[in-house]
């Protein structure tokens, strides 16, 4: 079951963020350029989805994201904090080395966020087992 969230404030960006529900977990795949407005819209959409579908976990795959600045960092932290209030755990998966180095230098260590090397590991962390080679890049 796939749905799309984050159509952007003006709706004209032509980007969408795929949100996929896998059993008990929402898999959100961020890719490429994410405008500030889209990120905020996504935050709302995810919170709504968690509440509607009563999932127990959220995996945000950022392996396709080239930069995370303090704005996107804040949005990610807030998604996790919001999910926690709705009794769902959030795992940030697939951060690239260059992005991690930059975030640390920026002073943003996202202490409240659980992290995983990739989607498969993130699913493991949430207690969902996937067969190797499926559902992960």
């Amino acid at each position: 079951m796939t749905a799309f969230a984050g159509h952007g404030p003006a709706g004209g960006h032509g980007f969408t963020v795929p949100v996929l529900q896998l059993g008990d977990v929402l898999l959100v795949t961020l890719q490429g350029e994410l405008h500030d407005g889209m990120a905020e819209q996504l935050q709302q959409d995810i919170t709504t989805r968690i509440s509607d579908s009563r999932v127990s976990g959220v995996v945000i795959d950022i392996s396709g994201v080239e930069i995370v600045d303090s704005f996107l960092g804040r949005v990610l932290a807030e998604i996790a904090a919001g999910a926690k209030l709705l009794a769902a755990r959030t795992v940030l998966a697939g951060m690239r080395p260059a992005v991690a180095i930059t975030l640390v230098e920026l002073g943003l260590t996202l202490p409240g966020l659980r992290t995983a090397l990739d989607v498969e590991r993130a699913m493991e962390l949430l207690g969902v087992t996937t067969r190797r080679g499926e559902g992960s890049p």
């Binding site: 991690a100 230098e105 990739d118």
Partner: peptide, 12 residues
């Protein structure tokens, strides 16, 4: 500490 923090962000 920076190295530790960066590794943690990547899930290690």
């Amino acid at each position: 500490m920076k190295t530790v923090a960066a590794a943690r962000l990547m899930g290690a």
